[in-house]
Design a protein around this nucleic acid. Sequence first.
DNA 1: GTGAAAACAGGACAACTGTCCTGTTTTAGT
DNA 2: ACTAAAACAGGACAGTTGTCCTGTTTTCAC
Lengths: 223, 223
Amino acid sequence: MPQRPASPHRRTNDPEGLRQRLVDAAYIAFSTRGYHSTGLHELKREAGVTGGALSHHFPTKKALGLAVIQDRVAEAVELTWITPVKLATTTSDGIQAVFASIISELERKGTVSGCPLNNLALELSCQDKDFQAAIEAIFMRWRTAIADKLRADLRGSTIHDFDSEAMATLVVATYSGAMAMAKACQSVAPLATCAKQLTSIIQNQTSLATHLNLESGYPVSRS
Amino acid sequence: MPQRPASPHRRTNDPEGLRQRLVDAAYIAFSTRGYHSTGLHELKREAGVTGGALSHHFPTKKALGLAVIQDRVAEAVELTWITPVKLATTTSDGIQAVFASIISELERKGTVSGCPLNNLALELSCQDKDFQAAIEAIFMRWRTAIADKLRADLRGSTIHDFDSEAMATLVVATYSGAMAMAKACQSVAPLATCAKQLTSIIQNQTSLATHLNLESGYPVSRS
DNA sequence: GTGAAAACAGGACAACTGTCCTGTTTTAGT
DNA sequence: ACTAAAACAGGACAGTTGTCCTGTTTTCAC
């Protein structure tokens, strides 16, 4: 009698690869359709994995969600925001470039599914302490990176009353909210508008601070 | 034989009141726990209604969600944002008052469950066209109300290069995003920071425009 | 080679989801 | 008073949810 059945579904053990496939599929699903709207059976089908494999790598749905946040969402923020801003010549330029990149990407794919971090933040922050902590850490890192860049911009010019942390918070908040509005009206218009406003504000703010720093009553006229 | 049983659950028909109770309970549940995280059985228990009553007033969960958005969420935006801003002496004052009011309310209740409109927008916009349209309409009304107030502020002073619509978009986006950050870190700090930044920006922007409008190189010193 | 642990397969399971259905009671028109 | 419709009661229903369980296969240390 065959201990090995006729065609016993040959498989190649690849724990790392399987895990990546799972988290990838979950990241896409959670980001677009939402965490609670995505069933695990549905997810298993999309990722091409069985229940045994899923429960082996992630004993609960929460563990999978946490992995998505810490691995994929954090990475996405790093790639689309933090690195481009850090590499840009100035914060204003970096922000403008990031917005432009995201807008063109959205126009290419047709629909606005929103910022993955924001989507999961609003859905999960109040539901679980671990989710909240993981998401908060990403927001913190994001905000800090922009604040650092803003401070680097002002290196040399001795300006006192410019709050880099506050401005970084404004930038992150404005982007998040603009993306929410873009998702609500399925249009990139709010993003384009806020991008323009933000760069204008930062440039005004920094140049204004520079002028005030001259401690005289009149600004430097540029004509 | 008793056609009328011993104690046959006397009830008082009150279609309007029952509907209100249902939408109220659903508004609270959807705003805090989310649309998909709220089961209808759970909701029936909280509202104190039976399945028959629920399905009579709202044949589907979507119908209930739509009623929550159009009745309660729209009203909430009207009460907490549009009316206060409209009644304020200036847009900047109105915005500051709204933020202060919301912040103190959040501090009183201890937890940050987020902006109801934003919560439902991110959860439902991509899921259903009707939801998206209803939410988009509220965003539109919100933004337009602020833009109108900004234009009213500038009545008299002939300023050309101030885009009220863009500034209104910025205000709504910044508030939405700040509330999202506040929810993510369970702190009102982002709201307080963005409130300060916003009022500063509006005042700088309008006064700067006024100064530029003088078409001279120096601003009006106020001392 | 042998044993043990890791890596998977495949399905069972109870709990829950939203919807619907059959009755009963109240209301209102005539 | 009679009747039809509206307003509810209470539960049944099939589908789905996340989790868990028993096997089988691969890997690896010794």
